[in-house]
Design a binder for these strands. Structure first.
Lengths: 364, 364
DNA sequence: TTGTAGGCGTTATCAG
DNA sequence: CTGATAACGCCTACAA
């Protein structure tokens, strides 16, 4: 009385139904029970096959696999999650997904997650807006993701994360030195400045990203460091906000400052700046040399082709996802062998891409 | 014997435990059972409250809500999905997520889905690569999403979709006229060309997007149509691939062709083209006027500021998500009142953004 | 190596 | 308007 109709499963070795598939299949999706019946094994054995459990006889394994194919079996994740308390899903909080870096990272994270057999649930937020970030994180937590990859480009995002005290494995990205896995912004900035100094420039300005943005801060720090390391005086810093507009608007002040070279914190500003400079009759690189950061697709084909710094987002994403998965596997925070590989890794070094926007200063 | 320890629920009106929360809570997350016990109702009633079922007495409702708050209850989606056969998740296949349009759409789709109480599972693919698209779709289907939003910018993507015969509600985006919801590329292209013609140009070329890309095709069609409508001869079409590089490379041929104006199928190519033109000593817009498409952030601050066409991705996403949800609610494909609103809507009209890259042709 | 017996947390169904 | 009971499809014990 406890069982309903189609429970003809787990009844000894009922390998009889191997021939006909046209049994009475009243509307229900095939499950382990059906596969088990067809293969003449128990549900449990099917489950073992599904999870690559070692202790299954090759012959049995084959029979089960065949049955799954024949029935077109597809696992039900909800059911699995209900039992295991794990969803095999990692959540991504994508802040500023329209920016070049984050969007690259996003795609890379997805690829890495999928390769690892995980699903990706995404939420987008406005990094500067605490409410937006909070709601996105809550949304993700409600989804019961196994781990989180959070893009936290803004200091405020980090603050929000701290308050939330998320109870699941979390990796923070795009937070410069504040993340366990990062692209070495500071080193990249130094390379950019070095290119300028090596070309003979001594009067160099920095067109910075917005205050409170960690990567902007790191790039600005690299700018200052390299100048200091070369024994040059502190450079002037102009405020930008990543947008081409801000680069464009900074042109006038930059011209007035009399510098011969500029390190822009990203390519978009560099491009906007060049636009502004030319609009004001100042030629690039003849009067002012420019270096950008990111190597956006436009950079190579702008006029002049932009010297810039390229980063490896794919590698960053790989490491981040590996970490989240490893941590979620071992119950978030246990010690042991895993911790070894799970620790923060060295920042990933960027590469300087030399093009035509930098030449030696002309004797004005 | 069938029940375990903490099953002190559904036992008449057990509203006694309202005071102490420090019961014996042995490690398990709070569920409806706990809430029910605290509120002195059955699990079913809690479930009704959770699902906004109308037939619940206000007073009961309030008590349940209070209990949920007190216990910090959070719903378990896996369990819900197991019962309902619906995940409240919509899958997004994001092809070419690095392009401006798709990335905007992606964020917009997420916002729309979240607003509707749905989750978003994302997969990225290479639109031109059938294998990549297939695997991404399979991935999404395995996740048992309720519906799909597929970016199908490439004709091949559509072909793959046809073969797959997905069994769930699907909305296709970025496939120009082949999607039920679309941004009116053709009309946008006509606006762009009209701007050129209105300025007095009669010798106009088109820098097209890649062949087989539906939106590129639609834009090219709009180009041809407007020219014909104005009684002008067919314009020359140059092949591009959306990239700034291709725009840059097209410069030489364009100059040789002697046209006085160009309609580029996207801003990136327009920008690359301008770079190439200037590198060749041809000034824009003095010698050649240029119109782009998309209104990327750079467009306004390039040199010269680019005249272009802006599209409303947010509106597109809203409609697409609404459609998917409506369809999935009514068992994918039923007829009835829903079908009315579910039909394809008119293409969304873009807007011409006039800036400085277009001037009347100079008397060379 | 394989099978048996529950339970995971929610919703659906049918009573009252 | 509210409650009891049986799924939902898989997994983790424990047993054989």
């Amino acid at each position: 009385m406890k069982r309903l109709g189609l429970d003809a499963d787990d009844s000894g070795l009922a390998a009889r139904t191997l021939a006909g598939v046209s049994e009475s299949k009243p509307q229900r999706a095939v499950g382990v029970r059906d596969v088990a019946a067809l293969a003449g094994v128990s549900r449990q054995t099917v489950s073992r096959v599904l999870n690559d459990h070692p202790d299954v006889a090759p012959e049995t394994h084959a029979r089960v696999v065949a049955a799954m194919e024949e029935l077109g079996y597809r696992m039900n994740n909800a059911a699995r999650a209900l039992g295991t308390h794990r969803t095999r899903t990692i959540g991504v909080l994508a802040s500023d997904a329209l920016q070049y870096g984050p969007s690259r990272s996003m795609a890379a994270v997805e690829a890495a997650a999928r390769a690892a057999g995980y699903w990706l649930t995404a939420a987008f937020a406005d990094s500067g807006d605490a409410v937006s970030v909070t709601s996105a994180i809550e949304h993700l937590r409600a989804q019961a993701v196994d781990g989180l990859v959070v893009f936290a480009p803004h200091a405020r995002t980090l603050a929000v994360l701290d308050e939330l005290r998320i109870g699941i494995p979390t990796v923070i990205l795009h937070a410069a030195e504040r993340s366990a896995f990062s692209l070495d912004q500071r080193a990249g900035a130094r390379m950019a400045v070095a290119a300028l100094v090596d070309a003979g420039h001594t009067s160099i300005a920095h067109l910075a990203g917005p205050v409170d943005w960690l990567e902007a801060e790191a790039r600005a720090a690299g700018f200052a460091e390299e100048l200091a390391a070369r024994g040059l005086p502190e450079g002037t810093v102009f405020a930008g906000d990543w947008s081409p507009r801000s680069g464009h608007e900074a042109a006038a002040a930059l011209i007035a400052s009399g510098v011969t070279a500029v390190f822009a914190a990203n390519d978009q500003m560099a491009l906007g700046l060049i636009g502004g400079l030319r609009a004001a009759g100042v030629s690039v690189p003849e009067r002012i040399s420019v270096v950008g950061f990111d190597d956006v697709p436009e950079a190579a084909y702008a006029w002049p082709p932009l010297t810039t710094v390229r980063q490896d987002f794919e590698e960053l994403a790989r490491r981040a996802v590996a970490q989240v998965i490893a941590e979620s596997g071992s119950g978030s925070g246990s010690s042991g062998a895993l911790m070894e590989a799970a620790m923060a890794s060295d920042p990933i070094a960027p590469v300087l891409i030399v093009r035509d926007s930098v030449i030696p200063p002309t004797g004005r």
